[in-house]
Design a protein around this nucleic acid. Structure first.
Lengths: 193, 193
DNA sequence: GCGCGTGATGTCTCACTGTGTCATCACTGC
DNA sequence: GCAGTGATGACACAGTGAGACATCACGCGC
């Protein structure tokens, strides 16, 4: 229930993104952001755990969303197939819901600190996915590795999608990346039997 | 060429690890570390970029070491096979060279901040590996994904190796993890053709 | 043997971050 | 109206990372 100027949180996020794009993440202080938004540093801390966090709004929901999608996949599918279906489904939703993805991506790519944080967010996704895949019958180590591969595929697809603004839909990139990976892994897989 | 008490850098690392193990990473300040080592905070900054860095000595060499191992693999091997061979080879060397791995691992596992930093280090490995795999004939996207999978396999193997002190050799865990992964991916791979 | 330069370390200082505590203000419901 | 509640501001403090400069120990040439 916002009372003052609407939605301090959104204003902070907007200001942050704008300033980061303009000067680069490292050259912007929290005070710069709050001044720009007409608020104080203390208020910033109430909405975001730290300076990096202002760029990762809603990411705490991603693990639940993705694993739910995998859980909801056709029960006849094995773990790996369910994983792919779930990723593609999530990508379709995400592509519409998350605004400013390309801008955010550019800022994150420009700072080691931010890339580290992003990786941390994906670890949460990996953990949740591994748990879900175990529940769908994968072995312990297999579930972990499958989850890790799934996240890698997701990130590769996400990168291409944001880099090609007028390219294909997000889910298309997912199946493409997965095909490319299994192709590259085929020599090892075949030798296995 | 150190002149005073031998090797300030090593003393700082030792002190840091000891204190982190004793009280936990978050509850130790840089001043605590330097006091313990008989040095000053300013000197700490000269050896390490930040507080986390004191736990990641030598990690900047890892990308070069691993990619060199992949480059050195039998030229007859394809990218994926060379990757596995290189990882196993590096693991064998690493297992002997890096001291205190289990302790370090325990500390890192106890702090989100440190886990993030570790992920960042592995990104450098992934980048170097992707470049090497491209040189060995993998496609752009395929090289990236293969590298990512390689790092995942490496980390899974590393985790098991440090968790089972009297278990098998590090390289054994690598081939085990790779086999498990290709097994889990088989359904997708088969459907591909 | 001696001073000199070089490099490692210490001292001092400052900007920035993250956080606790308390005051203040705007709106809600009575 | 008026008390209460919740968002925001003001102030303070510990911790970090970094610049500028002083200082000290060693190795070398004379």
């Amino acid at each position: 229930m916002p009372r003052w100027e609407p939605s301090a949180e959104d204003r902070l996020r907007e200001s942050a993104l704008a300033l980061f794009l303009e000067r680069g993440y490292e050259n912007v202080t929290v005070t710069d952001i709050t001044d720009h938004a007409g608020l104080t540093r203390r208020t910033f801390s109430r909405y975001f755990a730290d300076k990096r966090d202002v760029l990762f709004a809603g990411s705490e929901r991603l693990p639940a969303v993705i694993s739910q999608a995998v859980r909801d996949a056709d029960p006849a599918l094995g773990p790996a197939e369910a994983l792919l279906a779930g990723l593609a489904g999530t990508a379709a939703i995400l592509a519409k819901q998350v605004p400013r993805s390309p801008e955010r991506r550019r800022v994150v790519a420009g700072s080691t600190e931010l890339r580290e944080r992003e990786l941390g967010k994906f670890v949460a996704v990996t953990d949740a996915l591994a748990e879900t895949l175990r529940a769908r019958g994968a072995t312990d180590v297999g579930a972990r590795l499958l989850a890790e591969v799934g996240v890698a595929v997701f990130r590769a697809a996400f990168a291409r999608w944001t880099e090609e603004p007028d390219g294909a839909d997000f889910p298309v990139y997912i199946t493409e990346a997965a095909a490319e990976l299994t192709g590259a892994l085929a020599p090892i897989a075949d030798q296995r039997k």
